[in-house]
């Protein structure tokens, strides 16, 4: 019966177990095929490797070399860490500022940030790439600025919503004690914003780490992130090397799964909090 939580149910458990296995199956199949010769993958993906078809780590070594996996990993890590750090640092200040300073201008600005959340990337795809070229942001460091700008809508919105629930008295007390707004923000407000900062960080990590089109258009294939490298494996080599592809898919998934297992609690809570407030 709904909402009834008195006894545990073996049938329900079995049903969920079957579903969970079905959910994990695709990842397992990819993992299994990453040890098979490239000609045995498309035809019989559901057969275990063995005998002739087992090639050990060959797909991994050839894949890593073909797409420069480790430099792609480094690039993804660099872009994700620094752009998310920039987003959290700058948009927390902006979210607080726009909530506390109530003028025509700050309201208009806030409206623009919220408005940007409904604009799909394709709308600004071409013109943003051109603008980035003109102002010299078409490099990995410039990309951080683009991410800050394009990611600021949701992040400012989330911070601002949270600041509204922080009582003004705290800030007034600091002011009476003679603290400057800079002290006040970094010593008093920022620690209070920690829960929402985690949410903002997680939502942006999930976006930036997996983003394909934005870095591809802004800096091209010169500095490849993992999604660009994986896509390049298909595009750059005529007929696709399925073995290398499987191995690279596995390597692309491993960091995400590790991140997830370590920060699971924060991720699920962060996603729920972000969704509820967004």
């Amino acid at each position: 019966m709904l909402g009834d939580s008195q006894k545990s149910r073996p049938l329900l458990f079995l049903l969920l177990l079957v579903l969970a296995i079905a959910f994990l199956l695709p990842i397992f199949i990819v993992f299994m095929n990453s040890f098979k010769g490239k000609f045995f993958i498309s035809d019989e993906p559901f057969v275990f490797p063995g005998g002739d078809t087992f090639v050990g780590l060959e797909n991994y070594t050839s894949g890593i070399q073909k797409i420069g996996f480790f430099s792609a990993f480094g690039m993804s890590l660099f872009i994700t860490v620094f752009s998310v750090a920039a987003i959290v640092f700058f948009t927390s200040m902006t979210g607080w500022y726009l909530t506390r300073v109530k003028t025509k201008w700050s309201s208009a600005l806030f409206f623009m940030f919220v408005f940007s959340m409904v604009v799909p990337f394709q709308m600004v795809m071409f013109t943003m790439t051109q603008t980035a070229n003109v102002v010299g942001l078409d490099n990995p460091v410039g990309l951080l600025v683009i991410y800050l700008g394009f990611g600021s809508g949701l992040s400012v919105f989330l911070f601002s919503g949270f600041v509204k629930s922080v009582p003004l008295e705290i800030e007034e007390a600091v002011m009476i004690d003679g603290g400057s707004p800079i002290d006040m923000f970094f010593k008093v407000i920022l620690p209070i914003l920690k829960p929402i900062a985690i949410t903002v960080a997680i939502l942006n990590v999930m976006w930036v780490w997996n983003d394909y089109l934005l870095p591809y258009l802004v800096i091209g294939t010169e500095y490849q992130t993992i999604p660009i490298a994986v896509q390049y494996l298909k595009g750059g080599y005529g007929s696709i090397d399925m073995g290398a592809m499987m191995a690279m898919l596995v390597l692309a998934i491993i960091p995400i799964v590790l991140f997830y297992l370590f920060c699971q609690k924060y991720i699920i809570e962060g996603v729920v909090a972000g969704a509820v407030k967004g």
């Binding site: 700058f90 200040m93 623009m112 940007s116 600004v124 943003m128 980035a132 991410y147 600021s152 809508g153």
Partner: peptide, 13 residues
Amino acid sequence: FALPTLLAFIVAF
């Protein structure tokens, strides 16, 4: 507090 975000927002959006 607001200018860095605003400049990035202007360029990117």
